[in-house]
Nucleic acid binder design. Sequence first.
RNA 1: GUGACCGUAGCUCAAAGGUAGAGUCCCGGAUUGUGAUUCCGGUUGUUGUGGGUUCGAGUCCCAUCGGUCACCCCA
Length: 424
Amino acid sequence: MSATLQAIRGMNDVLPEEAARWLVFERKVQDLFERWGYRNIRMPLVEHTALFRRAIGEATDIVEKEMYSWRDELSGEDLTLRPEGTASCVRAAIEHNLLYDGPKRLWYAGPMYRHERPQKGRYRQFHQYGAEALGYPGPDVDAELILLCARLWQELGLEGIRLELNTIGSPEERARYRADLIRHLEAHYAALDADARRRLHTNPLRVLDSKNPAVQAVVAGAPDMMQYLGEASLAHFEGLKQLLAAAGVGYAVNPKLVRGLDYYNLTVFEWIADRLGAQGTVCGGGRYDGLFALIGGKPAPAIGFALGCERLIGLLADSGRAPAPRPPDAYVVHQGDGTLESAFALSGALRAAGFAVVQHAGGGSFKSQMRKADASGARLALILGEDELRAAAVTVKPLRDGRPQWREPQATLAQRFPELIKAH
RNA sequence: GUGACCGUAGCUCAAAGGUAGAGUCCCGGAUUGUGAUUCCGGUUGUUGUGGGUUCGAGUCCCAUCGGUCACCCCA
């Protein structure tokens, strides 16, 4: 395989069988977003590196080691393949002054790029659908987004997904908490591993969700974020929890859920599927009231989430809910002088009437054409040979039921077709 | 980036240092123009790649590429 070209590591081809699942999934997601009043926005895959460095944060794993960044030789600009969508979305909102007449609900979709070691549910090019509610202070819209997710799992037929919720307060509250947390971690410095020590001053909140038991023992005795929250932050969190409870959406408050991006404040949440192994988070999001100002815009509150297509579609595949692709209604078999032109006319008429028609291409014997007709899954084979051509007719052969074949006039075929495809 | 396991036909897998195989799929045929069943026949390939050990390597060793899972982190 060394001599032949192959796809970049961690960037996968989605072959037709799986792509069929993608199409069904994407239609459902898009439809749901639109029904809830979210409007599509499409941003470029490439942005100035500075956007992500500022928005996501210098001390995050994404910026430290996962971005596809390069200097464009033609322009001299520092560019990056987007590792996530929120930064681009907010940049676009600021650049086009989208909030000039009030808050906006937006959704986007597409590939994201992170240079990580691939494993199940984690790829270097992966795909997200994201929703962003820009200009809403919440917590009403916080609840709306979470309810939207819950509804989506329902419509997709997914079970076994749980919601984890937390609040990380305002920047000021978090700063005070952070200072005390650092003090606590320093007091137990000997028990920390290399990762925790490195993060101690750059991003101490990240130490909270370490899976290292020794570090967790230190974390267990760490100060509690809830104690640092002011009245407004507490009210926001309580308001959200009440709305979720009233809507019947279950959740677990996870005080160690801090999430990896710097721009979050107050509400953070993750939807987690236990059946996916180590990469179980299928959807994650949170509030980012500071991001607009951070990247040079007029301050505006906002919240959003992104969901992972590969992981969710993987869940759909596991639960045996893979959608069967629509088989053609008819497969057109043709052989003999002048039949190809008639076949195109016939197929065209049926397609114009809204039917799914595959017309044989590539030559081959009559037998092989019939084999293809069967393999296509079509209800009917429409046979057009020289005999039929002379009679301006077509032979209709049902392939999925026991009816014998018969002849139909070409002129009325499309009109009568709904009757013909019915099995008796 | 770290670690473990694994790379043989398009796919699923055999071959325990001695001639590379099976199933499936695909293609052709079984009296004129009729599928899926059955029967007959056919191609499956630089054993991921490059070195090394050996009389001899799919098999052992090294490197490399790729895959899988986990760590890290996240979608």
